[in-house]
Nucleic acid binder design. Sequence first.
RNA 1: GCCCAGAUGGUGGAAUUGGUAGACACGAGGGACUUAAAAUCCCUUGACCAGUGAUGGUCGUACGGGUUCGAUUCCCGUUCCGGGCACCA
Length: 970
Amino acid sequence: MEYNFREIEQKWHQRWVAQQTYKVTEDPNRPKFYVLNMFPYPSGAGLHVGHPLGYIASDIYARYKRLQGFNVLNPMGYDAYGLPAEQYAIQTGQHPAVTTEANIARYREQLDKIGFSFDWSREVRTCEPSYYHWTQWAFQKMFDSFFCNKTQKAMPISVLIEHFSKEGTGDWDVACTEEISFTAEEWNSWDAKKQSDVLMNYRLAFMGETMVNWCPALGTVLANDEVVNGVSERGGFPVEQKKMRQWCLRVSAYSQRLLDGLETIQWSESIKETQKNWIGRSEGAEVQIKVADKDVTFTIFTTRADTMFGVTFFVLAPESELVDMITTPDQREDVDAYIKYVKGRTERERMIDHTVTGVFSGAYGINPITGDKCPIYVAEYVLAGYGTGAIMAVPAHDSRDYAFAKHFDLPIIPLVEGADVSQESYDAKEGIVMNSPISPDKSVEYDGESLNLNGMTIKEAIAATKVFVKAHHLGRVKVNYRLRDAIFSRQRYWGEPFPVYYKDGIPQMIPEECLPLQLPDVDKFLPTETGEPPLGNATKWAWDEQNKKVVENSLIDNVTVFPIELYTMPGFAGSSAYYLRYMDPHNDEALVSEQAAAYWQNVDLYVGGSEHATGHLIYSRFWNKFLFDLGISKKEEPFQKLINQGMIQGWSSFVYRLRGTNKFVSFDLLEERYDDAKKKNLYSYKGTEADPVYADISMVNGNVLDVEKIRQWTAEFRDAEFILNDRGQYIVSQAIEKMSKSKYNVVNPDDICEYYGADTLRLYEMFLGPIEQSKPWDVAGIDGCFRFLKKFWNLYRPAQKGEEGLRLDLTDDEPTKAELKSLHKLIKKVTEDIEAFSYNTSIPAFMIATNELTQLKCQKRAILEPMVVLIAPFAPHIAEELWEGMGHETSVCDARWPMFEEKYLVEDTVKMMVAFNGKTRFSIDFPADADNASIEATVRSHELMPKYLEDKQIMKIIIVPKRMINIVCK
RNA sequence: GCCCAGAUGGUGGAAUUGGUAGACACGAGGGACUUAAAAUCCCUUGACCAGUGAUGGUCGUACGGGUUCGAUUCCCGUUCCGGGCACCA
């Protein structure tokens, strides 16, 4: 009987649905295992072959765990809020909900074809009110919380309010935007507005006036991770810095815990490293600097406290408020001009252009260690957002300070023995300190003590300086983090609305029992004419405080009816806690029930792309830690093990249009030259330059363009002239790029499923290479996988005529040793491979075992039955069909994973290679249990020995068990 | 610039973490079956040298050294590719 994958796959898809094979419930008697994929954004382009890569990998693992007896949760859902649906809505007027719904339907259809073991009864969509209810709820909880730095935990804001009313700020170390202090009397004297403003300094979800990444083209602010190289990640539009009042999340409060948590989870080193860089912890010291002849002091931050003796100037960030305070009248004009210049520069310009600029403020700062008066400059190379926005400059040991000093002709004092600073600074933290101080009178005494670092290593000197600074109250030891608070509001329509209304300008939370606050309808998705966000177009978007409901805007009186927040939440809001919701997706009372959270704990295996390293994977860790502090989440870390599947790249094809014409020239006819100015290749044909134009991958066969096909593709090509090469072909050029609709290189999985079946697709995607590696899609090898499945199918002799369906005719004979060896070798390899996620090497093992068993003509139940179970995670449809054919009434999913036994793998005899000084010469068979002495004796008396030994002397004989014998000779 | 991960045939990639390098697959070449095609099956396939031949020899895991009886694997240096961070003090 032929391997009819179409029939088989369709049959089992239907049966899985009918029998709810993959529905899972909490079962205290079985150990749990939680497998999760990063849920997709349902884009209009549908799934491409890259999407299923991770899903297949996790599905294999989920099925394997289930066969091992675990109760496996393997859910799927949709990250349904997002920019593309909204951009589409702006262009077409189509409501994003409609587009999203249609896209989801298409995704589901495509996913269903591949045979995943998802429990669809737990599906979530971030845009559903029943889901974003809990996104809004979590936001309110953050609003009602602050972070205690000492206990490193979130606490209710009411505790802090009580503390303020009794003791003011006191010395409680809590996470805040800006360090301020006030007394209880002051606090109690303030009105509600002022108190609200002050509390914003502490809340975990707060409204803050911050520099934001404003993207004018998208009309919204963006988070740091949504900006790449100064342009928006989506669309590539320019981004500028702007000061705006925005909702923010105090992610920075959790910096240390986010860092510490990395040590407890099994993630790839590279992604942990990326997160460490993003969090950017640096230990250093803050030192107070007094401005000479002025009653002003500022604080600098340094990680190189040991270099205080080499300070020759100070630098303030242009945005610093101090600039205005210290600038002397005669420098005022220059400073103002400089600040104006800096403001006119975009973030992007600042990033690319590192030329030295700056201006002298006219003021001097006093170095507390040396007593020296050093000039204070204002320069854009010092960033307002990091540390204190002020630095001490040590040109000898910092390359940026060095460049600045050279430009403004400032002194450079070397502090490390042997360091040559005539050409460049010596930045390394290695060496012995000197010139610290240059002479005893160059070190200021405090309480009879002065600092001397000469002769110390740099590390010792850093520590000694910190002790000195602390002991004499010149500053303090401080840890800084690069991690910024996340900007949490967007000026968009298609996102979660904030459950917030404004009363006298003070944000108020909509009562918890009134959640979810549903996204209103609007007739236009663009900002309003007055520049308000799209929600400003909603006509029913006001909060009736007394009746606790949303009412028409016309009723706003600011007495009982108030305006509701017009901002919406960003993309990462809905994706930050979805893994908790899957545990209990239909709960109306809570994000997740106590019982479900206690059972499922956290995600054991999370699979997704590494591009989320500094976005989603930071935000959701933060979000989970917050919910952990609340007792909702049961584990400090949400994702225990993380596998990053690589990208499947596409082959982009280009045709070349002669500039200013509608003629396209075959690539092999073009002349190439390299343009240094533009740093890229240029092509020309008979003197006319040719520009590459994307051609759809489906019009190309190998590298030959199907000219007739492309003519039918778009109007652009219909009447085009194609200049062919002398073989009459049009050759395209190709490049490996990320798969993208706009590059016309997308391969979608439907065609593969149609032609080869889902099992072949699954096998092939895994066979393509190591799961974590990026690799171009290439259908060349897919036939091999298809052929293997056919061979596997043919291992099982079908039933005789007249029997219904597939009845496999297996014998109950005792397997032979060779058969058992083939089987157990396979069990061992596949089990180890799945545990290590190296599926690509399991598939060859299957092929080898299948070939061996075919040769042995094995028809034994004891061998072939476990084989079906082994392949079930990889190719579930064929496995089910064969399993049923063997007379089983339950699904293969309920079978048990076979255990391998070492005894079947042990050989009676072992072939041992005999090598002379490492060079292999011949082999001898030994009984497997031969001891070293007898092996050595046999070798010494072997007939071939004289031939290879000649007149050499045996020095020693090294026996590597079961492998080789190396004879070391002179 | 700093940090991280890599480099193995024509191609994707294996190699028990120091023990026969190139599994398996693709591609290519040859053959069988067939009127023919498709499908299927079999053989060859890292390079070079010697031999009609079975076969034998030399080189070979980016490059240059080192440790070792033995190195794709460990150590030092170099080159190249990928990823992250980046006037972060």
